[in-house]
Design a binder for these strands. Structure first.
Lengths: 226, 226
DNA sequence: GAAATGCAATGAAAATTCTGGTGGTTGAAG
DNA sequence: CTTCAACCACCAGAATTTTCATTGCATTTC
């Protein structure tokens, strides 16, 4: 798998290249928008990682140029924190995902793999829902009944897991290993507490209640049929 | 690499086996001390992971039995939180490492790899020091001038990194990637803050100051010569 | 049906980590 | 020599996550 990285900040660029190479990808690194666009038009890449702030041409312009040249590979944007609102713009322009700096490399790798797995460009699959609850994996936003809901990282991870396995009863051990990377002989009740917090945000004040406790088994997020 | 796991709690045992198998190890799983000891004496294992609390024979007894039978593979113990003080006992009996439940699987894997890499039984290499500062990687304890110092997980990770590369100036980008798994165009000062907290614990009130800031470069932990 | 038992929910506190701002220091440029 | 910008230290407060203790509920057992 061949990946194009366009990033001007030297440390970040090297870090990305090295990490991706270690993960088994072939990587080309460009230091500005012009070089990046040129490489992208010339070479045959399976995916591109673009910084938004770039010398000469910014990330959007590179993306636009690529699409004009008929390049349909998935594109992942790296945005700084204060460019948060630019996300929407990027997604509208045809980016497939974004990541806010600073980010964990493991997170980037996971996103890259997801994009490669599902082939190029199909944003729809990044939306999940149950009843009137919606989760947007790209924007990392949740809402219920149209009202926006703020979730912390753990809450989001937990809700995402519940949604992915909608209708299935998830044992605590599974939840622990997925959301906390923890092995358990219990001894702690983080899961109960986290579940409480999540319920407070997505179930309190709403009907129907989506998260159901199955005594002795675990938790389910009811699917639309339930 | 062949590993023996002795764990009675079914979920934990399965979790361990599956995880280790996915990581490329050959795994035998025993559900109680007697079976575990028998397997350990019979088979040819590169490492053993033993729960302390086991039916029939506890972890210590299994360990003792293995050593009596001349088996010198490294042994890693899993202990519950309230058995914390048993650690010392285990280490004295010839365990090579321990892990407190609940734990992150990644943590276990890292320890296992370390034990396998350095071959069997050499506890000494698990102690690090600089001047009168000591860090015990096994017991996860630090002390300076003989006085015990409590460190949080992040603080410990940070100090361990500094000690491992004693005398080297570590750039922030390296620290960020090692301790936080984060890529940085800065934008946050977590490192400075964390360094401050660590200094408060290991340098404030002591001489000489061990952590030195190298402007524009990063941080060093002075080695004994420095 | 009452008591005992075990699991889950809850609220509150504690611990840890992160954020944002302010001010000091240093080295370079004018 | 002065000014400026970058870099870093430090603090206070906020946010997040974890722990602890208690209460409630349901199921089993007598």
């Amino acid at each position: 798998m061949k990946i194009l990285v366009v990033e001007d900040e030297p440390k970040t660029g090297d870090y990305l290249r090295q990490g991706m190479v270690e993960a088994g990808f072939v990587v080309d690194l460009a230091r500005d928008g012009v070089d990046g666009l040129h490489l992208g038009q010339t070479g045959d890449y399976d995916l591109a990682i673009l910084d938004v702030m770039l010398p000469k041409l910014d990330g959007w312009q590179v993306l636009a140029g690529l699409r004009r040249a008929g390049r349909e590979m998935p594109v992942l944007f790296l945005t700084a924190r204060d460019q948060v609102e630019d996300r929407v713009k990027g997604l509208e322009l045809g980016a497939d995902d974004y990541l806010v700096k600073p980010f964990a490399f493991a997170e980037l790798l996971a996103r890259v793999r997801t994009l490669l797995r599902r082939g190029s460009r199909s944003q729809e699959s990044q939306q999940m829902r149950a009843a009137d609850l919606e989760l947007d994996l790209l924007r990392r936003r949740a809402s219920r009944g149209g009202r926006h809901i703020d979730l912390t990282a753990k809450e989001f991870a937990l809700l995402e897991l519940l949604l992915r396995r909608q209708g299935e009863v998830l044992p605590r051990s599974l939840i622990a290993s997925q959301v906390w990377d923890m092995n358990f002989d219990s001894d702690t009740n983080v899961i109960e507490v986290a579940m409480r917090r999540l319920r407070a945000k997505i179930d309190d004040g709403f009907e129907p209640k989506l998260i159901r406790t199955v005594r002795g088994m675990g938790y389910v997020l009811e699917d639309d049929a339930g």
